[in-house]
Simulated assay, not measured.
Amino acid sequence: MRIVGGERRGLTLRAPAGSTTRPTSDRARQALFDILMHASWGGRELLHDATVLDAFAGTAALGLEALSRGATQAWFMEQNAVARAIMAANIATARFSDRVRVLSCDVLRPPRAAGPVTIAFIDPPYGQDLVPRGVAALQRAGWIGPDTIIVAETGADEPPLTVETPLISRRFGAAMMTIWRPGHASELKTPRAS
């Protein structure tokens, strides 16, 4: 597993052994960031100077990828101690320690945020209906506002997320990525893609 774009492109990241942590594949991350960089609602300015939240962070690959591509700050939420140790090693290897904050917390009970982030990556374990519950908890705590871009990953064999007007929904192997902005449903014209 490696960072696939930006200033740290090619940097190898560690992942814990076993199946407890399931990092987003390099291919899926590349496709996801291509979408974020080139969509009409995205673009380079979306990531430039962005603050990002990597919830259920695991290895921190999504947040580190965003930092490599121009985000200025990343928050990582992870309650598993083994995953946090791997994450700390990846952050140190990427030399982003001064731009990150790791929170040892349950995403369903997050601390209060100073303000909403630009992009929230929600990548929980599959099959536990954690995306809707996590998004609701993060909204209540102020991490997600009406302009936040939410990028959620679920299993491709799970029921689709019930997002009123997604910006895009795409399958990448065993993963389904759904992207939306919670406060702009009436403005979004992009139909759901499959």
Rank of each mutant, 00 (worst) to 15 (best):
Met1Cys: 06
Arg2Thr: 06
Ile3Ala: 01
Gly5Arg: 04
Gly5Thr: 05
Gly5Asn: 04
Gly5Tyr: 04
Arg8Lys: 13
Arg8Tyr: 02
Thr12Glu: 14
Leu13Val: 08
Leu13Trp: 12
Ala15Gly: 06
Gly18Tyr: 13
Thr21Lys: 12
Pro23Ile: 09
Ser25Met: 11
Ser25His: 05
Asp26Ala: 11
Arg27Gly: 09
Ala28Gly: 07
Arg29Thr: 10
Gln30Pro: 05
Ala31Gln: 08
Ala31Phe: 08
Asp34Thr: 10
Ile35Trp: 15
Ile35Leu: 13
Leu36Phe: 12
Met37His: 10
His38Val: 15
His38Ile: 10
Ser40Met: 07
Gly42Arg: 13
Gly43Pro: 15
Glu45Gly: 10
Glu45Cys: 07
Ala50Thr: 09
Ala50Tyr: 05
Ala50Trp: 03
Val52Ile: 11
Ala55Leu: 03
Ala57Arg: 00
Ala57Glu: 01
Gly58Asn: 05
Ala60Gln: 01
Leu62Ala: 04
Glu65Phe: 13
Leu67Ile: 12
Ser68Arg: 04
Ala71Val: 00
Thr72Tyr: 01
Gln73Met: 08
Gln73Arg: 15
Gln73Lys: 14
Ala74Gln: 02
Ala74Asp: 02
Trp75Lys: 01
Phe76Pro: 01
Met77Asp: 00
Gln79Met: 12
Gln79His: 12
Val82Arg: 15
Arg84Thr: 11
Ala85Arg: 15
Met87Gly: 04
Asn90Gln: 13
Ala92Met: 06
Ala92Pro: 03
Thr93Met: 11
Ala94Gly: 07
Phe96Ile: 01
Asp98Leu: 09
Asp98Ala: 15
Leu103Arg: 04
Leu103His: 08
Asp106Ile: 13
Val107Trp: 05
Val107Pro: 04
Val107Ile: 09
Arg109Ala: 14
Pro111Ser: 12
Ala114Arg: 03
Gly115Tyr: 02
Pro116Ala: 14
Val117Arg: 00
Thr118Gln: 01
Phe121Met: 03
Pro124Arg: 03
Pro124His: 05
Pro124Ser: 09
Arg133Asn: 06
Gln139Arg: 14
Arg140Pro: 03
Ala141Trp: 12
Ala141Gln: 08
Gly142Val: 11
Gly145Trp: 05
Asp147Thr: 11
Asp147Trp: 02
Ile150Trp: 00
Ile150Gly: 00
Ile150Asp: 00
Val151Asp: 00
Ala152His: 01
Glu153His: 02
Glu153Ala: 01
Thr154Asn: 03
Gly155Cys: 08
Ala156Cys: 11
Pro159Thr: 12
Leu161Thr: 12
Leu161Gln: 11
Val163Arg: 02
Val163Glu: 02
Val163Asn: 03
Glu164Ser: 10
Pro166Cys: 02
Ile168Glu: 13
Ser169Val: 05
Ser169Gln: 14
Phe172Trp: 14
Phe172Arg: 04
Phe172Tyr: 15
Ala174Gln: 14
Ala175Gly: 05
Ala175Thr: 15
Met176Trp: 09
Trp180Val: 08
Arg181Ala: 08
Arg181Gln: 15
Arg181His: 04
Pro182Cys: 05
Gly183Arg: 10
His184Tyr: 10
Ala185Val: 07
Leu188Ala: 08
Ser194Thr: 09
